[in-house]
Amino acid sequence: MTQQKYEKLSAWVDGEIHHDGLVDDLKNDAELMQKWQGYHLVRDALRKETPDQLNFDIAANVAAALENEPTLLAPKKSTWRDWPVVGNVIPLVRNAGQFAIAASVATAMIIGVQNYNQPKDVETNFESNSGFSGLGVQGGLSPVSLEQSRALPRQSVQEQQRKIIAFLTDHQQQMRRKTTELEHNNPQQVTENETEQAEVSPK
């Protein structure tokens, strides 16, 4: 009888038969339950699907833990929320916090928009300056950080950009000229550097 039951269970676990009565049998028969667990474990092991940690009998452990749990009868501790005044103030503060967050988001939006617009200005300005050969064909500046938070008047922004173009162009020109200088002045430069270093080092 038992052997037959086990075979049935095995077939059921493999999905080969459908037998509703078996579930009821399983629920009432601890030995059968054990077997059911064993079959699943074997199957998982064969398919290499076993979890990293094997907890062989979670259900039994939980049941035992629940059994041993002492029943709590002590009353709940009163918290500051239950004090009459504070209880009313806290929600108010919380709401105010939400307003503050909303406000800060709005500020961030405004700042974000300003920052977003500035590089555009810079780029259009560079593009309009067609006589400028130092920068790339699709040249444009991307500001990393503008340390002044106030908005510059448009005039001075343009002035600033013109200045940056001036320096960047000059840097390109100087770099292109460099090799010439290196060839001719190098020995002289080295001695110059050495004397300079000598002058600086005693300080």
């Binding site: 013109r162 200045k163 162009t169 460099k178 002045n185 430069q189 550097n193």
Partner: peptide
């Protein structure tokens, strides 16, 4: 890093 050249010149743009 070494000094390659020094001079006083005019920026071509401004």
């Amino acid at each position: 890093m070494n000094e390659v050249r020094r001079d006083t010149h005019r920026l071509s743009v401004t």
